[in-house]
Design a protein around this nucleic acid. Structure first.
Lengths: 139, 139
DNA sequence: AAAATTAGTTTGAATATCAAACAATCATAA
DNA sequence: TTATGATTGTTTGATATTCAAACTAATTTT
């Protein structure tokens, strides 16, 4: 097996491990996968309009309407009117939504610690360095 | 921002980039996400029974029945009887299914090359080394 | 002011998913 | 060897997810 194949294999094994970990974490919450993703985006980037949220989620605005409806019903988010343009609604996390975001972030930190525990200090630095490069340039 | 937070951020940025890349690749095909996942698992591990496939997919056997029905209808996979135990069906990729798997694998290689292009030879080696450790021990 | 554009919602259809009930087959124990 | 129990996979009924296209309301352009 050449180096390209080897890296491909390790990359996708890693990705799949991450995926199933993420899914199992979400299943412990009261949220669906799409709701959890919306909360993560809103928590990370702050309030935004429907169209921007749809863009981040990679789905249509129609789908996003439904997701935000459910989040609103469960009191994780709310729509806020904008005076300057009454077509626009800013989606904002409620207290409960921010709480859920914080909890989810804690889970992420836990996984990172788990990963760190199998790496040396030097490897940790290498990994940060490499990920920064990839994130900035590769996608 | 401490080192743990920094790594958490880079890890999940990387994971999200990977996710949306994977989804956009699947959207170019005639396959749904769940069908593509099933093909990837069957292509990687070879033929297996429903229950094992369901386990790999992280869904119930009921859901897997539906997925395999569709793959069979589109001629990507077929059920094979087992003489020793007639309850079991081995799910096998057809020629067309293997073709689809090969194409998908090619996409994966392309992404890996894209990632490699922003790394030095040394960083490439570091990344393989680190991923191997994580995949073997962390999840 | 009319026409075109934009933001978001609704609708109708296909797919995804689960839990629970079910049918067929196999294994075990009396 | 039969009766009981366990396993494998399918079906069913319900809810969730998603999209494209039609639609409404508001804003911008001409």
């Amino acid at each position: 097996m050449d180096s390209l194949d080897e890296l491909t294999h390790e990359l996708f094994t890693f990705f799949n491990g991450f995926s199933s970990w993420e899914n199992s974490v979400i299943k412990t919450s009261e949220l669906s996968v799409s709701e959890a993703h919306a909360i993560e985006i809103l928590g990370t980037h702050g309030q935004m309009k429907m169209k921007t949220l749809a863009g981040h989620l990679g789905v249509t605005t129609g789908t996003t309407t439904v997701t935000v409806d459910r989040l609103e019903k469960k009191d994780y988010a709310r729509r806020e009117a904008v005076k300057e343009d009454r077509r626009i609604h800013l989606i904002t996390l409620t207290q409960k939504g921010q709480q859920a975001f914080a909890e989810h972030h804690q889970y992420h930190s836990n996984l990172t610690e788990q990963i760190l525990s199998v790496l040396s200090v030097e490897e940790n630095q290498q990994l940060i360095n490499i990920l920064k490069k990839i994130n900035a340039e590769a996608f």
